[in-house]
Design a protein around this nucleic acid. Structure first.
Length: 607
RNA sequence: GCCGGAAUAGCUCAGUUGGCAGAGCACCGCAUUCGUAAUGCGGUUGUCCGGAGUUCGAGUCUCCGUUCCGGCACCA
């Protein structure tokens, strides 16, 4: 059994043994219910375990109570775990007896790969598994009330889509019932922050079957988020010496042929638009266009539009560019994976000497942007090519020296800046290594947010050159970067990160005025007018509801600042401020509030 | 794309063996003019995801498709 999934637990720990043993117990229960099923892997994971099966008859979540019942019965029986070590031939014979084709495949691989003399097996009750262990002594050592089956899912044998699709049953497992309950409660609480749920409740985006899968409609509140993100990016990029460009969402297919994208990525693009013309021998394609899946060829075309001098470098071309990718149907999800998106893109054309400082500049931009969100829970990955991976080898530009050189530069930058990072072999772009910023969604899935990529291939392929100080032509390097990812993915993360309670600078509605009765609406409107004149997104709750009702409504909409206005406030020219999540409120002169909120917004203060 | 599940009002959901499509919230109207998380009364709201089939009769059963959810694979 694979021990790759240590689940954050030491393999010798009690919890690891419990989870690992429960996987066997669950497999025993499932095999009892579905005789003739065969086994894949069944490792412990971060919050429990799973086991993969090729089932003789499908199972679904309705079967969970029965599986759990059988598991508890096994635990009660106190089945002892027996370890047995067999020599290579004996082991294979044993697996054949078991009738486990996938276990046999893996056993053979282990025996050939790892110079092992034999393999170990564990038996408990009627269940026998090829497994390295360790396990508990008896099933009585496993708490009966600290596990819970979670979901049933499909998973390819050994993670390869060319292999059989197995059925994976996930379960939570802990060492006490309290730990399990705490985990389940935390999980359910996290579901409340799901960007799909909050996106609907807070009127941020809408998905319409008729518009198309993966093509979100941004509602007024969502459009504000986009604008604020774009404002932030433009400020950071302006200060860092970027120039803005604007380019069309589509291009002639020839552009993508020349860039080399088309032959390799046609399947991931929307189908080509072909303009046909009648001729002598029927219709012929006159022109073909593609919806662009990336902005680079457009920006490269701007670079190539006229002769470039080394004096212009580094040339930094920035654009929030719309791109369209035909993501596979099963991949599309909320705002996280979409088919039409708007990317915080830029391409930096530079000399070899400038690579390091430009890369550093982009890394600093990340740090500044993420600090503005208070986003600190992310991992940095150095994404390299993997020349060993035969299946993927063809997707990389074949130039081992360039790979080695560029990966060296990127690693050097990270080391120089003392950034902690994880290694990501096989995660590179086809044209070069990259640094990716990975964040976790509320459901625990890790996704790539920002990226910086060092491209040693495309400029040459497209014939981009600049004239150097020596009067000769040179090929520039290109850095592709998207620190703020796409609006879609960034918004998804920020919605979950803030649980929908955005800081004032980012909030769709920054201030809502609540009048105690409509006698004070006139003053309320005056307050709103003054705030709006300073570009504060303020509105008035002008309904004849009770104050309680309006406060409840403002709070459930997670509006950061509620202003209560009644007789006292009107008489004194003050407002009473009730901030989101803070029960204590304060009354202050309107002037003072105006200055305060302007400062909150300008400084992008966090709550 | 693959495995499993789901789709009923704007939202959350109920709908029995196939027999008149419902509730709460939201929305609209009227009354209320209110000081800190739901004022009262009344009303509107439907391609029961789409198409085909079975049936005297389909929200309910069957088939095909679409979309969504949980995963896997993919993510230039």
């Amino acid at each position: 059994m694979s021990l790759e999934h240590s689940g954050g637990e030491n393999a010798d720990s009690d919890l690891y043994r419990i989870r690992h043993s429960l996987a066997h117990v669950m497999a025993q229960a499932v095999l009892d219910m579905r005789p003739g099923s065969t086994l894949g892997f069944g490792p412990p994971i971060a919050d429990g375990f799973y086991y993969d099966f090729v089932l003789s008859e499908a199972l679904n979540e309705d079967d969970f109570p029965e599986i759990e019942r059988r598991m508890r019965r096994i635990l009660k029986q106190g089945q002892r775990f027996y370890r047995e070590e067999l020599g290579a031939d004996e082991a294979l014979a044993r697996i054949d007896e078991m009738g486990e084709p996938y276990k046999r495949e893996y056993a053979q691989e282990l025996l050939s790969r790892e110079d092992l003399d034999g393999l170990s097996f564990y038996r408990n009750g009627s269940f026998l598994d090829m497994c390295e262990g360790p396990h508990v002594d008896t099933t009585r050592d496993i708490p009966r009330d600290a596990f819970k089956l979670r979901s049933v899912a499909g998973a390819y044998w050994r993670g390869d889509s060319d292999n059989v699709m197995m059925t994976r049953i996930y379960a939570w497992a802990f060492d006490t019932r309290e730990a399990l309950d705490a985990h389940v409660t935390a999980f359910e609480l996290a579901q409340e922050r799901d960007h799909k749920k909050l996106g609907r409740e807070l009127d941020i985006f809408h998905l319409d079957e008729l518009v198309g899968r993966g093509l979100p409609l941004w509602l007024p509140n969502g459009a504000v988020l986009r604008e604020e993100l774009e404002k932030l990016a433009k400020e950071l990029e302006f200060r860092a010496g970027y120039e803005r460009v604007a380019t069309p969402h589509l291009a002639r297919a020839d552009l993508y042929r020349k860039s080399g994208h088309l032959p390799y990525y046609a399947d991931d693009m929307f189908p080509m638009m072909e303009l046909r013309e009648a001729g002598d021998d029927g219709e012929a394609v006159k022109e073909a266009y593609v919806l662009r899946p990336m902005n680079c060829p457009h920006h490269h075309s701007i670079f190539a539009a006229r002769p470039r001098s080394y004096r212009e470098l580094p040339l930094r071309l920035a654009e929030y560019g719309h791109v369209y990718r035909f993501e596979e149907s099963g991949a599309v999800s909320g705002l996280l994976r979409v088919r039409g998106m708007c990317m915080n893109d830029a391409h930096i054309y530079c000399t070899e000497e400038q690579i390091r400082s430009e890369f550093k500049g982009v890394m600093q931009m990340y740090a500044e942007a993420y600090a503005a969100f208070g986003l600190s829970d992310y991992r940095v990955r150095l994404s390299r090519w993997d020349p060993e991976d035969g299946k993927r080898r063809e997707k990389y530009v074949d130039n081992p020296e360039a790979w080695e050189y560029c990966e060296g530069i990127v690693a050097e930058v990270l080391d120089d800046m003392e950034v902690d990072y994880v290694d990501g072999p096989g995660e590179a772009a086809f044209y070069g290594p990259k640094i990716d910023i990975l964040c976790r969604t509320v459901t625990g899935r890790e996704e790539q947010l920002g990226t910086v990529q060092l491209d040693f291939a495309q400029p040459g392929r497209l014939g981009l050159v600049y004239v150097g100080a020596d009067g000769a032509e040179h090929t520039p390097y290109c850095i592709h970067r998207a620190p703020l990812s796409t609006h879609e993915r960034m918004a998804a993360f920020l919605i979950e990160h803030f649980g929908g309670a955005f800081p004032t600078w980012l909030a769709p509605v920054q201030v809502r005025v609540i009048t105690v009765s409509d006698q004070f609406d006139e003053y309320g409107h005056a307050v709103v007018d003054r705030l709006r004149r300073r570009f504060v997104r303020a509105e008035i709750a002008a309904r004849s509801d009770t104050v309680s009702k309006k406060i409840r409504e403002g709070t459930t909409r997670k509006i950061p600042n509620l202003l209560i206005i009644g007789e006292r406030e009107q008489a004194d020219g003050t407002v009473t401020l009730r901030r989101y999540g803070i029960r204590r409120q304060q009354t202050l002169p309107l002037d003072e509030f105006e200055a305060w909120i302007a400062e909150q917004i300008a400084s992008r203060a966090l709550p």
